[in-house]
Write a protein that binds this DNA or RNA. Structure first.
Lengths: 335, 335
DNA sequence: TTTGTTTTGGCAAGCGCTTTCACGAAACTT
DNA sequence: AAGTTTCGTGAAAGCGCTTGCCAAAACAAA
């Protein structure tokens, strides 16, 4: 295997006996070059195995034809659904996509602001309001996911978490439940708060006192939820008959706790989650939950971002509604 | 919000009253600049909100400090486990990672060869032997995943699919099964073939005739598998008592088919899969399967790639062994 | 003081590419 | 035959940055 020194546009020009500008024109389909010349250039390029250096190209032209998807949470069910939707949408519009998982805050900002991509989709909890100001100052077209954009010019797509919490709770109330438990997420989780707000709202509207409803906190993981629900069920005099969990994993933990104590899910205790992760439909009993339009969020984000790159001024905040997915983990309240 | 024109190193130099080379040195920690000058530069940079243009930097220096993970299959359980493992490993070594999902073959090759990244991890079925030659010629450090590297200088990490198929089949044989069905993947799937080879090997070793064992093909999806198994079970005179599926999704489809006909999984028919995707442990009955060390594959790939970037010559092909995960979908053969 | 040595910072080249502009030849017009 | 337009091509500038090299300044040694 002979390693050949990297060929540049100059080498192609020499071999084809034309200037480098002609090579550039020929290769980029600018229609000012005769077919014969173009053929000659193409042939020379092929012969040399020429591949344009994208750094040079991008430095000069000022655009990368790349969109960046910045995220810190690679895991989780959202991630690949989003990446898939975004990458497809982006490709359709003649752009490329890069997923960038920055190791620290500085790397993150350097990549957003350092002309690496023409626009950014940010799904990132490292980012703060100052960063947003920075991005605005550098006028990098940007779309925020799952995070409201404070201020104009930056668009965002968020889920209607409060309404989802409200709808889910109403569904449980309609099944006759009057003592509802809420399994909250981490303290600082925005969505979890909103879901709880919706929960309270529905409770109050039904003429019940939301302060009397048990809230177990910090339970975004299966095991934590399992332990908490198990001990709650063990010690509570008159336990809740239905549980609304902050997410599906937590709901699954709750179901396992219920089963472990010899109770039946749905029959004895109803459980509901949020997100409709892949597992939820396979778990037995299959989990009743609320599904967010993740793929749609990705597609909308790409559309908006490309419009912004092409000059449209951003600043829209779109709220996407979830959808109730009723399965087998919920049932009528007993008496 | 006032949009300020993008600041360059030149602006910083002017404000700090030094030359641009001094700015560069100060900013990059080259130790040839007095602390006072450095302070002045840093202050000026902060004041102007200066962020270096990575295109310029990379064009000049010839390195991007970025590794590229090229993939076409975003979905699937492998994907995010790999991305997560790789991104962590890469960050630890002072590099960044980009996931690049090319829309077509040309984009793929341009991104690999166009100096966008210092090295490539390729998990890609678009790539063929010619492409590999190209990459070698351009001497881009590259690691292949799930695909043997033909020839020297390119390293690869593959799973030991044949051994896995062999072990899984032996496990089934040890449970007393004598009629085993194989649910094969797509025709052109490398792993599926190898797993089948292992299957045959174990069958023959046990003194049975592998040609008598039913093989259902093209079943890498749940529904296809469901339908095929259902009709097989319906029409077969003396059906197999155990099924080895080419992957977990296919195994799940088979289990659903078994249940839909009123049989019991494990008791009446054993089912086994490959991959140990997340669902498998949650599905009831939980699936017996073979787990591949995906995260480990990613970490090894990064280590190898960085060594290659730093001059070590590649060409190693490492085979990673899977691990039997015994759950509830398999049981002793009846009689 | 002179000479030699080190430190500090600036100049300028150039990474590979696109793009503006000018030029000469060919094709039209008058 | 001369003037005008069209067209293909090339020269050269410059995108933002790093870096080799050199000059100036500062210091140490003689």
């Amino acid at each position: 295997m002979i390693v050949v020194k990297k060929k540049t546009i100059k080498d192609v020009a020499e071999l084809a006996n034309v200037s480098i500008s002609t090579v550039s024109n020929a290769l980029n389909g600018v229609n000012v070059v005769t077919p014969e010349t173009k053929q000659r250039v193409l042939k020379a390029a092929a012969e040399l195995n020429y591949v344009p250096n994208l750094m040079g190209k991008q430095l000069r032209s000022g655009e990368t034809k790349m969109l960046g998807f910045f995220t810190d949470s690679v895991s989780g069910p959202y991630f690949y659904v989003l990446v898939e939707a975004i990458s497809r949408a982006v490709a359709k519009l003649g752009y490329g996509m890069q997923v960038i998982v920055p190791s620290d805050h500085k790397t993150l900002m350097n990549n957003i602001l350092g002309n690496v991509v023409d626009g950014a989709i940010i799904f990132e909890h490292m980012i703060n309001d100052d960063d947003i100001q920075q991005i605005l100052m550098h006028s990098v077209p940007t779309v925020l996911l799952d995070r409201p954009a404070h201020g104009p010019k930056m668009s965002s797509f968020i889920f209607n978490s409060q309404a989802e919490g409200y709808e889910a709770t109403k569904y449980l109330l309609n099944l006759g439940h009057r003592r509802l438990g809420f399994l909250a997420g981490y303290e600082n989780n925005h969505d979890s708060h909103l879901r709880y707000a919706g929960f309270k709202q529905a409770i109050e509207e039904a003429g019940l006192n939301s302060d009397e409803m048990p809230v177990l906190s910090g339970l975004f993981e299966e095991e934590a939820s399992y332990n908490a629900v198990k001990s709650y069920l063990h010690y509570a005099d008159e336990p809740a008959t239905a549980f609304l969990a902050g997410n599906d994993l937590s709901a699954i933990g709750a179901m396992k706790a219920i089963v472990s104590l010899g109770y039946k899910v749905a029959e004895d205790f109803s459980v509901m989650g949020f997100d409709d992760i892949e597992i939820s439909q396979y778990f037995r009993p299959a989990l009743t939950t609320v599904r967010n339009p993740i793929a749609r969020q990705g597609i909308l984000a790409v559309d908006e971002l490309l419009a912004m790159i092409n000059g449209r001024v951003g600043g829209t905040e779109q709220v996407l509604d979830g959808e109730l997915v009723i399965r087998d983990s919920t049932g009528f309240a007993k008496h």
